[in-house]
Structures are given as C-alpha cells and as structure tokens.
C-alpha cells in the first residue's frame, strides 16, 4: 500500500515538474531542434539578449507590472480600509462588485475594456494597459488587505489616539506598519498577475508598447524557437526569487 501511495505521489510530481525541467534543460541545448541534445551552450541566452525587441518587451512588461501593482495596491488598500472602517451607503454593492470583477471571465473584461477605451478615444498603449491591469489586480489586493484587517485589533488605533496621535499620525505609525505584510502580499500578487496576463493585454495593447507575454505568444505562433526556452527559464528564476522574497517578508512579520 505504501509503495502504491509513493508511486502515485511520484507520478503527480513528475507530471507537474517534467515539462519545466525539460524547458530548463533545453534552454542550455546547443542544438536548434528541440528533439536531440547537441551539448551545453548559452547561445540562446545570448541571442535572447541580442534581440532588442525582446529586451524592450521585457523592460516594458516589468515597468507595467511595477506600476500596475503599485497603483492597485494604493487604491486597493484605501478601498479595503474604507470597507473595513466605515459604514456607508452602497458598501455591500461595492463589496459585491469587487467579486464580479474577479469572477467574470477575462475575455468579457477584455472586450468591455476595449469598448470603453475606443469609446473614450484613448490611444491603445501603456496607459490603456495600465488601466486594464489595475482593474483586474484591484479586487485581489482589496481581498488580501481585508483579510489582514479582519484580524486587526480595533483597539490599536484607539490606543495611538489616546496617546496623542492624530488620525494621520496613527495611520502612518500604527495602521500601515501593522498591515504592511498584507500590502506587500497584495503588491506581489498584482505584480505576478500583471506580468503574465495575455488575454486582456491582447485586446488593449497597441503597437507602441509591446509586452513580454504577447511577444512570446507571437514568437511561438511561427514555431517554437529555443530562445523561448531561455526566456521561460529566466522568468521561472524570477518568480522563484519573488516567491522566496514574499515568504521571507511574511516569516519576518510573524516574529
């Protein structure tokens, strides 16, 4: 029985990680075709960095993810605080609408955003991408911050006020430091979502601002190039670093 359980587990992990392992291994393959091993080489990494359009798309994507995550964390944190602290008309509607954005199919969001931008006469490019990415990151940030706030001791802001802090000082010295891990988690989530979004981006991006996922997508349409393996490996390393960073932040905040 134990033997069966172990082999089942092994099979699951195999299915999960073999494709990734293959991708990493072939990114170092000297051979042009993906079927045979032609010896170790870094040539695909080299050609990747010599591909200016690709490097530009990478920087574009990073900048977009950075700004989208930051803007949605700011708006999301304020929304979460408002939903947590105050009672106001339409609170339930606002809460429900966040879930609507989160649950609705991405393609619906993409079409409606495109329609909106066309209606407004907004030129498709960085700004339209940013607005779209902030829109779909926002609910995730709000929910992450709200989860942290629900365990927040209501007496802490009162204690700060009692000791002479104004509302603003209290927010700066007590509230934000206490919910900081949630803000960071929300930011990282937004960053990741923005970084690998294809569907919405396809609709709202223009020729002036090319981003990485779309670039990769157009590359593989004309056949799988080994550069894509190298790029995939780099992205994998990048996400692992981000994951470790977020874990480290969370473990430090628990101390």
């Amino acid at each position: 029985m134990r033997w069966l359980a172990r082999s089942y587990l092994a099979l699951v992990y195999l299915l999960l990680y073999v494709p990734i392992a293959v991708l990493i291994v072939f990114s170092f393959n000297d051979s042009r075709t993906g079927y045979n091993w032609g010896g170790f080489s870094l040539r695909w990494y080299e050609s990747l960095f010599n591909n200016h359009a690709m490097v530009q798309a990478m920087w574009n994507s990073l900048w977009l993810a950075l700004t989208a995550a930051t803007v949605s964390t700011c708006i999301g944190a304020l929304t979460a605080l408002a939903l947590h602290r105050y009672r106001f008309r339409g609170k339930k509607v606002l809460n429900g609408m966040l879930f609507v954005v989160m649950m609705s199919p991405e393609i619906v969001l993409a079409i409606s955003l495109l329609g909106l931008f066309l209606l407004l006469g907004l030129k498709l490019g960085y700004v339209s991408l940013l607005l779209a990415h902030v829109t779909f990151c926002l609910p995730f940030v709000v929910i992450t911050v709200m989860a942290r706030l629900s365990g927040f001791d209501e007496r802490l802001p009162e204690a700060a006020r009692d000791l002479g802090a104004s509302d603003f000082t209290m927010t700066r010295t007590v509230l934000i430091p206490v919910i900081m891990p949630a803000l960071m988690a929300g930011w990282l989530l937004g960053f990741t979502l923005s970084m690998d979004d294809v569907v919405v981006s396809t609709f709202v991006s223009g020729p002036s601002y090319e981003i990485l996922p779309l670039r990769i997508y157009s590359m593989v349409r004309v056949g799988l190039k080994p550069e894509v393996n190298a790029l995939g490996t780099l992205l994998l390393v990048f996400s692992l670093v981000m994951l470790m960073l977020s874990q480290w932040i969370l473990s430090r905040s628990k101390q």
Binding site: D153, R155, E158, A159, R161, D162, L163, V174, P177, V178
Partner: peptide
C-alpha cells in the same frame, strides 16, 4: 475634545500593545 487632546490615558482590556 478628541481623545488625542485629552490629558487622560487608557489601559485597554486586551492591552492593545503595538505589535510591531
């Protein structure tokens, strides 16, 4: 008068110490 302007201080039920 808001709490921060009152010369009184409070000891809260669950202490409300700043955890950070």
């Amino acid at each position: 008068t808001p709490p921060e302007k009152r010369p009184l201080n409070t000891v809260f039920q669950n202490y409300a110490l700043f955890p950070h």
